[in-house]
Design a protein around this nucleic acid. Sequence first.
DNA 1: TGGCGGGATGTGTACGGTCACATCCGGTGG
DNA 2: CCACCGGATGTGACCGTACACATCCCGCCA
Lengths: 355, 355
Amino acid sequence: MTDPGPPATSGQSRAPNIRDVAREAGVSYQTVSRVINGSPSIRPATRQKVLDAIDELGYRPNQAARALVTSRSRVIGVLLSDARSYGPSFTLQSIEVAARAKDYFVSTATIALPDPPSIRSALDHLMRQNIDGLVVIAPQTRVFDAIQQLSPDLPLVTLEASGRKDGHTIAIDQEQGARLATRHLIELGHTEIEHLAGPQDWIEAQTRMDGFLAEIRENDLGTRPPILGDWTADFGYYAGTQMLGRFDFTAVFASNDQMALGVLHAFRDAGLDVPGDVSVVGFDDVPDARHFWPPLTTVRQRFELLGARCVDMLLGQIEGDEQRYHELIAAELVVRGSTAPPPPHDPDRAFRRFR
Amino acid sequence: MTDPGPPATSGQSRAPNIRDVAREAGVSYQTVSRVINGSPSIRPATRQKVLDAIDELGYRPNQAARALVTSRSRVIGVLLSDARSYGPSFTLQSIEVAARAKDYFVSTATIALPDPPSIRSALDHLMRQNIDGLVVIAPQTRVFDAIQQLSPDLPLVTLEASGRKDGHTIAIDQEQGARLATRHLIELGHTEIEHLAGPQDWIEAQTRMDGFLAEIRENDLGTRPPILGDWTADFGYYAGTQMLGRFDFTAVFASNDQMALGVLHAFRDAGLDVPGDVSVVGFDDVPDARHFWPPLTTVRQRFELLGARCVDMLLGQIEGDEQRYHELIAAELVVRGSTAPPPPHDPDRAFRRFR
DNA sequence: TGGCGGGATGTGTACGGTCACATCCGGTGG
DNA sequence: CCACCGGATGTGACCGTACACATCCCGCCA
């Protein structure tokens, strides 16, 4: 044997390659390649010899060399607009786990600001790695526009529920979820419902608002213009205080749990009882929501389902079968303590509250 | 943007390479390479010709070929134990942004369960990509043990505050933060303080507990065994209800905001007033904390500082200067509504509470 | 005027795999 | 008994780039 203790060799000597393994095993490098790639026509004895040599040398296939010759990087790019909040980061994690199970790598790029240069920069960064496919968890219309510019050859999955049937979308059904929340309030007897929407450049925010408005309309209730928020609890608080200026509603449907939390805070500060005086519904069912005060009625999104399905779809595109999907996962209503029937009608309520 | 004219060729033709560019520009491929890599000895006119050709063809350097020949992948691996909660995902995002600014890619691997096989699997996955460096945001002792097995040649930064001075650590000072929280309670007059600690296989949980105990000891207060939690609000709720069985304390220091939220919930359910009857402090300052009820006094971690510094350190190691760092970032106390001086002493409090 | 030096550019080679094809081999059927 | 066949294995070429080195060209000075 040339190298005695091959794995922990003298530090700087280069990593073993496929030919080193071949020499060690007494076969040709091509045979080693076949073993690595699970070719069927290898005699078991030969395979074992090779495996032993691999083990002995501590050999690892060089991903770069492989990518170079196959022009497959085995990298999936994930474009995120915000990796900090619960939904996206949960989804990202589930994508990563699913991809790893299929021996794909995940590389992320976050969009710093929702402006075209940021989007371009993030997208360029991903493309520079010759990604095999792209997942977009950045359901903003601008991002979506940028995506359209990409080569149609690039396997793509977008996670959003715009309702477009362009064949590479998977999402939790935002509209249906919003309808669930709204219907729940209506069934409790509420007729004056405020909607605190998300930023309208977010497709999800639009779709939730659409669901809300549709449900309102179908129940012949009066429409009131939704308030446009920014997803943050801080904004929820601000909006909550503003709403109380004209206290002509008995329920609020906030487009996510964070804003709902802020609303709860504002109402509490104003001395209101939730759900006695006013009901509040959120969206997402973040793990904390059940510990809010009061525990928040909200719409659950099963983010953990998203990752696996989305990787499936993407690999389907990458590895050939050009099947097109459009999949919607149902959202679920979770009723907790923040909703109740509306209080008896009291025309002076707004007045009394602030005298 | 996609490719303007020529590149959008008949679909299947391979991507342009350095020689195509050379031909287009009328120079040798090596000159193109020099332009790409910013070599100084290129005549401006030549450089421009090359740049034009690159633009014309929509040329992109092939990362795999580059990695193959330089044996540098420009990929930074990030090992995470949990990508879903606020701190880690925020940190991850800031690492990614910092890395991108330096033209490095980020690839993540999440540890599904905190057992050795999972850790190994995640680590293997990263190593398979020939990462240039590794960031560990998985401050669990077991992960740390696994890290020790790695080649010492691999540039490494761990984000944790164990106090070890092994030269590649950066962290927010957990012990100091815990001391801040504890001292705040002591200064308010609390002498009987309960600590709801995190899981003890997390280095951060240990260090926070150490800080708590040290501060208690230095103030000559009686020690009581901390409760060991799992970071979740659900556990915080459970622990909160348990604590009330022997209601012999006036303050709780929870090792993170989530558990603090659960504790608040439990106390509220029991009819206690926070901070009138009992004070609660958290740790992290998640964005929601100010909207909890009552708004949570907590310890702020400036996660956004972590990413940039940590990428700096890592690239320092990767690109040569083998300087060793050990950096601690100070945590800050944020006082809100969940803390107040203890109520007057009342030996029957526990009894009255549950009669 | 010719050798010389240095900036600008070109040529050969290696990186570590995979693919297409060639080769070898033992068994089988005509 | 031999051509043939198919499974198992080996050989040559190539993927796209960077590095080391060779070459070229030009101005300068002796």
